[in-house]
Design a protein around this nucleic acid. Structure first.
Length: 226
DNA sequence: GCGACAG
DNA sequence: ATCTTGTCGC
């Protein structure tokens, strides 16, 4: 898998301009039917420590296959600024992906896809950078609003709309009695197809199993640093 | 000017 | 992301 370097923007203006340019490359069409091997991406961080990123190579029928780690020293990190998350975490994710024994067919990312002020959340940024299908599954909302209250039933979903009424993704209740997740396409997948894929993921608790495993591994790896 | 604000 | 005890509930 080709993994180009991820240059750190020299200014906020440059970061915004890059997002706008890359957002134009996003392809909002495609199905993930037939995709079996995905990489689930999540990160853990504590001030004073490096950022630890994890890529779990996960086969939808066989379960987890391997875990890749990416570690970036705090001093090398772009600051966390809402809307600019990819500049902080993507370099670590690329490192984690390089550590995998084989390339995934798609990316499942903890964060937004197109449900983002400039249409390029971290899922889309990584998808375009690697030319891979990707979707974002976020635990909270950054941009857009659900068009109606989300029913309590497991599996229910309501569209997420931009301020001007464009569909960005879905608020999605993965299990009864849990807070919603926010699903949006990153790259090379449609809005409906992204939701269909999320719904088909094995889900024992709130997070789809691949992301939950990535979350657990990231926390474990961070603790193991000291 | 006042909020909102992924991880 | 992390800081944090008990507490409600399956």
């Amino acid at each position: 898998m080709e993994i180009p370097p991820f240059p750190k923007p020299e200014s906020l203006e440059a970061a915004f301009a890059l997002q706008k340019a890359l957002a134009q490359r996003v392809v909002l069409a495609g199905s993930l039917e037939g995709v079996r091997r995905i990489a689930a991406l999540d990160a853990s961080h504590k001030r004073g420590k490096p950022l630890v990123a994890v890529a779990v190579l996960y086969h939808l029928e066989r379960g987890p296959l391997s875990v890749g780690l990416g570690v970036v020293p705090e001093a090398a990190l772009f600051p966390y600024i809402p809307g600019l998350l990819s500049f902080r975490e993507a370099p670590a994710y690329l490192e984690a992906l390089r550590a995998l024994p084989e390339a995934p067919e798609a990316l499942l990312v903890d964060g937004q896809g197109i449900a983002h002020p400039r249409g390029l959340g971290i899922a889309g940024h990584l998808g375009v950078h690697l030319d891979l299908p990707s979707l974002g599954v976020a635990k909270s909302l950054l941009y857009g609003r659900p068009e109606a209250p989300l029913p309590q039933e497991a599996g229910s979903a309501v569209r997420l709309l931009s301020p001007d009424g464009r569909p960005l993704g879905y608020a999605y209740r993965s299990r009864a009695g849990v807070k919603p997740l926010y699903v949006s396409p990153g790259h090379r997948v449609g809005v409906e197809e992204a939701l269909a894929f999320a719904r088909a993921l094995p889900t024992r608790f709130r997070l789809p199993e691949p992301l939950r495993l990535a979350h657990l591994e990231a926390g474990k790896a961070l603790r193991a640093l000291d």
